[in-house]
Computed example of a mutant assay.
Amino acid sequence: MAKNETLPLTGRRSSSLSVKQQRYLFIYGCLLIPLIFFITIRILPILYSFNISVREWDLLSDEKPFVGLGNFVNLFNDPVFLKSLRNTVTYVLVGVPGQLVVGLAVALLIQRVTRLKGLYRLLYFLPYVTSVVAVSWVFRWIFMKNGVVNGILLELGFQAQLFLGSPTQAIYLVIAVMIWQALGFQMLIFLAGLENIPAMYEEAAAIDGANWWQRFIHITLPLLNPVIVFSVIIGSISFLQSFTQVLNMTLGGPLDSTLSLVLHIYNLAFKHFKMGDAAAATVVLFAVILVLSLVQMKLLNKKIEH
């Protein structure tokens, strides 16, 4: 009887092992498919762009000679590239703080709403899921010379403005549109962070006599630090990659005053067919995003003791 009893146990043990192995094969197989996709779609093109950036890669020529850093030297001697680089810095320095301030302000207001909170969230989030091209063309129509805003200004007795036709005004209007469209995303991120802050901290501070501003500065902001780090990095990458709004609202004009680095890369590659210069500019953009993200994580990511 003892022998007969041990046989089914070993049989069960071997079958359980095979089921375990099948489970691990299934798990690793599911992980392998997106990994292959990521390597094929993301990693390999990035590595290939490094190869293109050190060659004179003209689509109209069969020969692709190695030129080393020649494409990078050409870029930094190109005034249009330098202008696009300065514009991109402006997009980041103006757009990211504006996005954070507006998103946090709206999140704080919605947090204090007692009725129809879901409706307000939906209304503020709708622009984020709306087509970027459609939004850009609507605002382009609004800020035309004979558009809605100039019509209102004339009715009020003010002088009409150039807006998107002005080298000094256009870039800030594009930034404003980008902030408005990303407001819903920033609002949801900050709302999630605000709702994770224990209410007892603010209640204790209020009992000690701290006013709203003191509670916001010394409690809310420090505890929102991880959310702020995430939001700054995502916003910086988004503004560094400014393309669709610029292309549809101004085409990079007037006088290249709104030309972003990504739009300049697009022009180099698909209008002038200078793939080597375009790949070199892409490598520069990659380096800027990498360094900026690392610096922001180092400076902003502070440990908070509750």
Rank of each mutant, 00 (worst) to 15 (best):
residue 208 D to A: 07
residue 186 Q to V: 02
residue 189 I to A: 05
residue 213 W to K: 08
residue 156 L to Q: 04
residue 187 M to E: 03
residue 152 I to P: 02
residue 180 W to T: 01
residue 130 T to V: 06
residue 193 G to S: 15
residue 145 K to G: 15
residue 206 A to K: 09
residue 196 N to G: 02
residue 167 P to Y: 09
residue 160 A to L: 11
residue 191 L to H: 10
residue 140 R to Y: 11
residue 140 R to G: 14
residue 139 F to E: 03
residue 167 P to N: 07
residue 172 Y to D: 12
residue 203 E to R: 09
residue 197 I to L: 00
residue 198 P to T: 07
residue 214 Q to S: 03
residue 127 P to V: 11
residue 177 V to F: 03
residue 164 L to K: 09
residue 127 P to W: 12
residue 145 K to A: 14
residue 197 I to E: 01
residue 169 Q to Y: 05
residue 169 Q to C: 04
residue 151 G to I: 03
residue 150 N to D: 07
residue 169 Q to G: 05
residue 204 A to W: 12
residue 218 H to D: 11
residue 138 V to K: 05
residue 183 L to I: 07
residue 195 E to M: 08
residue 145 K to T: 09
residue 190 F to S: 07
residue 161 Q to G: 06
residue 206 A to F: 02
residue 129 V to K: 04
residue 149 V to M: 06
residue 172 Y to C: 10
residue 181 Q to G: 01
residue 171 I to S: 01
residue 144 M to N: 14
residue 152 I to E: 04
residue 200 M to E: 14
residue 169 Q to N: 04
residue 170 A to R: 04
residue 127 P to Y: 06
residue 199 A to L: 10
residue 176 A to L: 15
residue 161 Q to N: 14
residue 135 V to Y: 02
residue 197 I to G: 00
residue 148 V to T: 09
residue 129 V to N: 05
residue 158 F to W: 12
residue 212 W to E: 08
residue 155 E to D: 13
residue 216 F to M: 15
residue 152 I to M: 12
residue 142 I to M: 12
residue 186 Q to R: 10
residue 129 V to E: 03
residue 223 L to G: 06
residue 216 F to A: 10
residue 179 I to T: 12
residue 149 V to W: 01
residue 183 L to N: 05
residue 223 L to C: 00
residue 138 V to L: 15
residue 181 Q to D: 00
residue 127 P to C: 11
residue 129 V to M: 09
residue 178 M to I: 15
residue 176 A to M: 10
residue 168 T to K: 12
residue 221 L to R: 06
residue 162 L to A: 13
residue 177 V to T: 07
residue 137 W to R: 11
residue 196 N to E: 11
residue 170 A to E: 08
residue 208 D to M: 02
residue 143 F to M: 03
residue 135 V to A: 06
residue 140 R to H: 13
residue 192 A to L: 11
residue 217 I to T: 12
residue 208 D to W: 05
residue 181 Q to Y: 00
residue 188 L to D: 05
residue 216 F to N: 04
residue 189 I to S: 04
residue 181 Q to S: 07
residue 183 L to A: 07
residue 174 V to A: 09
